[in-house]
Amino acid sequence: MASVDWITWKTDAKELINSEQIEEVLTKKANVFNNSINNVYNSIKIETEKGGLNKESLSINGESPSNIAANKILKRIENIKVLMDKFNNKISTQVAEQKKIEKEQLITAIEEKIDEQERILQNTMSLRNRISTNNQVVDINDVNAIINVTNEKIAMLKERLEKAKAI
């Protein structure tokens, strides 16, 4: 649940989970990974296709165990690539979900903060209406200052709210 402390920490959109940055990390890692494993895959695939490991190279009772082993390796690599792709997609999905959650939390927190400041404003304005300009206990200028500051806070929070909604 959003709180004053929470909003203090995370009123800036930059503090939200950065899906673009995470995508960049995932893509970079995946590219290095795929480049490496694709080289292995392609070299073995070509070798099996041109028959380098088949029965013409080594035949035992009409079978070629090396070719079977190579095909098993190819299947293993295909499986690893599928696992990697699915993993990256899963993380991307979770990042998008987390971003949505954090955006909603941010909007809620800012709205609550605006409500809080508007209550302060109303109370202060009510106080100002009750005191006379000659009151010696409460200086009307101090009250006006509070009202001005509160209005500024509300304006700032509303600006943040619009930014949060645009994320």
Partner: peptide
């Protein structure tokens, strides 16, 4: 199953080099 067992050393050696390279690649990266 064919009862004849054969080995083509030239082809098998070529394949071995490919597999060896793949093995080295997997170990280096």
């Amino acid at each position: 199953a064919n009862d004849t067992n054969t080995v083509d050393l030239d082809k098998l050696t070529g394949s071995f080099k490919v597999i060896e390279e793949a093995n080295n690649s997997l170990n280096s990266v």
